[in-house]
Structure formats: C-alpha cells, structure tokens
Write a protein that binds this DNA or RNA. Structure first.
Lengths: 304, 304
DNA sequence: CTGTTAGCGCATTCAG
DNA sequence: CTGAATGCGCTAACAG
C-alpha cells in the first residue's frame, strides 16, 4: 500500500533503494551527460533538467564527457547494470558513439544536439534558421565582410549554424572569405584567441558571428583588449542568449533559444518514456529562435 | 575472481549494480549538494569533485539545495536507503539542518562552509584573513569610505569575510558607516542592484568590497550602467577569483582561494572515509588566501 | 584453489 | 483482504 509506505517512511523507516530497485527493475535515476559543466551554457540546462526529474521522483547522476574516462563503456555499464533508467545528452558532439548502444528501447533524449538518425528523441532549436537570421541581420546592417567563429567541428550546432549562415549569405549575394572562418572550442578562451586573430587580419572583418554566446563574450573581450570599439568598429553577434549575454558588460546581440523551454521539453520526453509501457516512436522537437537586439550590432565603420 | 570478472565485463557481461550494492552494502555513489548550479562559482568546484570521484570509481549524484524539495528528508532517505556512501556540501548556508543527521559516522565533508561544530570534515579558505586583507588593501590605497556587499546573512562565508574586514578596519582606525552595508544573494543580479543603491548614496563610497566575485561582477556592471569609472571613481574588490574575474571585461582585483586545491582536498577527505574502515576524527583544512591585483582597485578620487 | 550455496531487503506472488 | 513465501542478481562464505 502506498499510503502505508508513506506513513512508514515518515515514521523513520526507509526502504533500501538497492533492494527495491532490484525487484522493481527501476533505479529511479537518470543520467545527464554534459560536455563541460564549466561552460555557463550547461548549468542553466542542468538546473532545469534536474529540477524536473526531482519533481518526478528521479535522482540525477552527472556524467562528464570530458573527464569521465571511457564514457562510452561507462554509460553502457550503467545502462546494462540497471543503474539508470534513462539518459539525456546535453552535448552537441556528433561523434560520441554512445547513441548506437541504446537503440534497443533504452530511453534517451538528445538536448541541443541534432539527431541525424532519428532514432532517439531530440530537442533542438532551429539552428539553421538561426544562422540565416544572423546573416540577414548583419547584411541588412550593411556588413559585407563577416567573420565566423565556430565551436568544435564535430558539433551539430556548429555545423547547422554555419550552414544556415552561409546559405543566407549566398542567398543575399554576399561573398564569404574563408580566411575569416575559425573553429575552436565552445569557450571564452577560444573566442578570445580567435577574436584576436580575426581582428588582426587586414582588412579586418566589420562583423563577427560567434556560434555561441560564450564564444561571443570571448570575442568581445578580444575587441576590448585591442581597444576596438563595439559596435562602432566591429559588430558581434552570438547565439543562445545565456544570462550573461544581458549583463551590462556585454549587452550582446544574440539569437535566443528558449533554453528553459527546451530543457523542460527534454525532461518531459524522457519522463514519458520512463512511465509509459508502450513503445513510443522517436520524436524531434524543433524550437523557434528569435533575435535579441542589444548593443553589439551596428552599421559597419564608415566604409572609406 | 576479479580477473574473471574483468574479462567477463569486457566480453559483454555487466553485473547488476543494485544486486551488487545490496550485498556489498556500498553504492559507489556520492552526492554533491550545491545551492545553485547557475552561480559560476559552483561548476568549477563540481567539475573537480566529480572528476576525482569518477577516478576513484564513484558515481556522483547532484542535489540542489534550491530546487530539491525537502532536501533534508531527501538526503536522509538517500543515506538510510543506502543509495549514497558519502556526501559533500558545497554550500555556505549555515542553517541547513542536514548536518546533524549524519553525525553517526556517515561520511560527510563541507566544502567552502565553516563547521562551527567540528563534527564533520571541513575544507575552507581563511575567509577571515581574506576579509582583513581586503580592508588592509583598500585602506592602504587611501580609502576611508568603504561599502560592503554581502551574500545571504545565513552564510558562513559572508559572516567570516565581513568579520575579518571589520576587524581590520577597526585595527587601522578607519570608521565603518553601517549605511554602506548591504546583504543579498550571491548573484550577479544582487550585486548589480545593491551596487546601484550604494553608488547612489551621497557621499558615495570610494570603494566597495563584494563578498564574492559574482557579486563583484554585478557591482562592476552597476558602475558601468551609472557611467562611474572603475577604479578612478570607485574601487571594487571581490573574493574567490573565479575564472571570469580575469576576463578582459572585468579584470577584477580579488582575493584568491585555491578553489581547485580545495575541491581536490575535499574529495580526498571523503574518499579516505569511504575506503578506510577505521573511525577518522573530523578534520578541518584551512587554505591560505592571496590577493590578486588586477585593475579594479586604485586610489580614491582626488579628495576635494 | 574451484564450485556450490546462502542471503542481502525488498515487492510481488500465492495461499489462507 | 491480510499474511507468509518466493526470488530479483549478485558476492561472500563455505565446503569439497
């Protein structure tokens, strides 16, 4: 009886979770795989995921793509060892070979990472449209020499955002100088270094598209270091709209993804799989994006 | 046989973790309790803790002091339900009533939170000395009207840093105007709001001590919003030396805690308890602090 | 040293 | 509808 148990638990009795899990064949635990907790982008998602799962009675274990040695076999062991009931990848890495192992009906959802094989649930924003929106915005402001700073190449977000961006440039008949394309990590440091490089090319770009906000903040800091005014001398646009983008120090113009909605949706998809007994076909949720205009985009410097 | 098992596991056999845990009476899982993952201070610590535990073969479950309803009973259930073998609180909250429940030999370590009752392992930096160092630095730069922005009052860090600060002011015969003391959350938003308030008082303070870096970044942004130059018009000093403090946009002068060392030490203390069979007395590790001079402290504006 | 058995603490079954 | 027995999948203790 549930009521009896509730009362018992309240009175000081606590069931052994391992024993319960052994018999119910449920661990009431889900794992969240992130690439790098230190990137301010992830905590915003983790917090919501964690909260949603906690509300539904699930514990959350954290896996780090960077530091967990042999993540692949580690995850496999957790799954086969029945230590987790479900899994959400909050990681844009394309070449993580993990997904393939969980096709067999194990509940998996991909958050912020597109799913080429449509074999598991996926929640993404319209990264391609976002890339297009960036190109459109910048070109409409008068820019013709635009640089792009990408995250790791093996990342679906970098790939899709770049593709949309280039498509739209092409559609608007603006040439793209491949010299102005750099790829690094999704980190402030990477944005800073690549920003310095880019701003030192001659002629320098009049605008820089950073494939995510953390990168964009690094680019802004690079401009600051080089005493290049934003947006007077160079425009910068990011992607994500993390909290910090709105800070007074940055006031970054960026493409907003509804991070909170996406995280909630991802949790919901996973929870449905965890509680439903029927087989559910893989679903893909694509969230719309929108431009948030703040203070880092303006017309190009008076062209000679 | 371990060897047999190893081979078996490699060939595709994976033991059921619940069954194993039921018999070994170990979950090989530890929990990390944080107040707010979204605060950039925590991920730096979580990452290291997580990594150290992973290396030692422990999974990490995440608990959020903010969102996990009834954290206290939740943790108790995990402990009594044998779902976790140990616990680290990365939270400065003083009034969390949780600690008392785990006195009975359950492995607990407090990271960045002082331990008034000396009943569990504790890893902190010398917050009091840090507070003193701040006062000394500011007064030596010529400041006599110094404001302080604190985190939540029920926080050991806020309490100790403030105490050290006031002690040293007193020792140097500098009066403290209690009008210039504000307390809020350890968040950028709080720092921003309180910073605005403080900078609008008249006469305004010539320096502001923010009890942690996130708060200090908020204060810097407040100055930026009000077009008040740092450090020409107002000096700002923080505490922690998180990564962002070094960013070009801030270049914050701050008191450095060896966050990484502290996290590693905390993990080590806990792992010792997890692997040793003897009773280990509670230990307290106090890490030294040091001043990191960047660009936000200077002499006060030419005094009339 | 290898193979067999008992039992960890539950939820679920079956009998009463 | 209530109560005792079964067994989930392992590891440890035991016997051969």
């Amino acid at each position: 009886m549930a009521l009896v148990l509730d009362a018992a638990e309240r009175k000081g009795y606590t069931p052994n979770l391992a024993a319960r899990s052994l018999i119910t064949r449920k661990s009431t635990t889900v794992a969240i795989v992130v690439a790098n907790i230190t990137n301010p982008f992830y905590p915003q998602l983790i917090e919501i995921l964690h909260n949603e799962f906690a509300l539904a009675g699930y514990r959350t274990i954290l896996l780090n793509e960077k530091t967990d040695a042999h993540l692949e076999s580690y995850v496999t062991d957790l799954v086969r060892g029945a230590a987790i009931d479900g899994l959400v990848y909050v990681s844009a890495l394309l070449d993580t070979p993990l997904i393939g192992n969980h096709d067999g009906g194990f509940p998996v959802v991909l958050l912020n990472r597109s799913n080429e094989r449509a074999t598991v649930d996926t929640v993404v924003s319209d990264n391609r449209a976002g890339g297009r929106l960036v190109a459109e915005t910048l070109v409409n402001s008068g820019h013709h020499r635009i640089a792009v700073v990408l995250g790791p190449k093996n990342t679906s977000t970098a790939r899709d955002r770049e593709a949309g961006f280039l498509d739209q440039l092409h559609a608007m008949d603006v040439p793209f100088d491949t010299e102005l394309k750099r790829a690094g990590q999704y980190s402030h440091e990477s944005g800073f270094e690549l920003g310095i490089e880019l701003l030192r090319t001659s002629p320098p770009p009049t605008a820089i598209f950073a494939a995510n906000d953390v990168l964009a903040l690094g680019v802004l800091d690079a401009a600051r270091r080089l005493q290049i005014a934003v947006p007077e001398d160079v425009s910068v646009i990011g992607f994500d709209d993390i909290d910090m983008a709105a800070w007074e120090a940055f006031r970054l113009t960026t493409v907003r993804q509804s991070l909170a909605d996406m995280a909630r949706a991802a949790a919901k998809l996973l929870l449905e799989r965890l509680t439903s007994k029927d087989k559910i076909p893989a679903r893909t949720l694509i969230f719309p994006i929108e431009l948030v205009s703040r203070s880092t985009v303006g017309p190009p410097p008076a062209s000679r």
